[in-house]
């Protein structure tokens, strides 16, 4: 039973296959409300696939996933209920190019949460201020820089007032100068108490805000530890190898 201050995501022995390829091999993890979990690992390790299964952008074949008390099955009602409570930020931003920034942010609240347009627009403007770009509300995504686009994407996800925010390598497609502005927004979000699952290669950021770091390799969680323990005294050999590669370039 999930209580108010308790677990918000439960994964029990989750397996996923892409045809013959076994991409997730028995993932079991529990994430508490308000916890910030950073997921890292080499490419192809299944970390993006894992967080995409949490909002059913990918389907798991075996195991049990429970998000905010709702079990993730093929039942469309459950899926849509879970998607309303989880916001996702993509590596490629995936903003809607035919809509202005304001329309991008208000699309979800108006059509899914059935808010009134004026309320949705007020909410959107407050979120755009929170991410630092209120003056861009009338522009189209193509007119913004990468960092600004990703911040709009974060505002768009937040507009649905989700309980969990999922980040799939949010800064990997950005120029180095723009990474900081996005990480600042994510940092502020973390301090405000949001439950966050972040797949990233930004180890400095992970060290700073994570409550727990999950290291994925070949479809399994190899190591799971708080950041200090993870970076300073990793237990597994694969973790040590990964850290040596990623921290020394």
């Amino acid at each position: 039973m999930q209580t108010a201050t308790d677990t918000i995501i439960t994964c029990e022995d989750v397996h996923k296959w892409y045809g013959e390829f076994h991409v997730l091999k028995g993932i079991s993890v529990e994430i508490k409300r308000g916890e910030k979990v950073v997921i890292c690992g080499p490419s192809g390790s299944g970390k993006s696939t894992f967080i995409r299964t949490l909002n059913r952008l990918e389907e798991h074949q075996r195991g049990r996933i429970v998000v905010d008390g709702i079990e993730l099955t093929s039942d469309l009602k459950n899926i849509e209920a879970i998607r309303r409570e989880t916001g996702m930020v993509f590596q490629q931003f995936n903003l809607f190019p035919h809509l202005t920034v304001l329309q991008n942010v208000t699309l979800g609240p108006i059509w899914v949460r059935k808010m009134k347009r004026s309320d949705a627009e007020a909410l959107a403007m407050s979120l755009l201020e929170r991410v630092g770009i209120p003056d861009q509300a009338g522009k189209y995504p193509a007119q913004l820089s990468g960092g600004q686009q990703q911040r709009v994407a974060i505002a768009r996800a937040l507009a649905m007032q989700p309980k969990i925010m999922l980040f799939d390598e949010p800064t990997s497609a950005l120029d180095p100068e723009m990474i900081k502005e996005v990480l600042d927004v994510m940092r502020e979000l973390a301090h405000s108490g949001m439950t966050m699952l972040v797949v990233t290669h930004e180890m400095g950021f992970a060290r700073e805000i994570a409550d727990r770091i999950l290291f994925f390799d070949q479809g399994q969680i190899v190591e799971e530890a708080p950041p200090d323990e993870f970076f300073d005294s990793p237990k597994q050999e694969r973790t040590k190898l990964f850290l040596s590669q990623i921290l020394h370039h």
């Binding site: 916001g87 996702m88 995936n94 979800g108 649905m160």
Partner: peptide, 12 residues
């Protein structure tokens, strides 16, 4: 990605 972004917002 457009489909995914829309689905992630909870749109049917």
């Amino acid at each position: 990605g457009q489909y995914e972004a829309a689905y992630a917002l909870g749109m049917n």
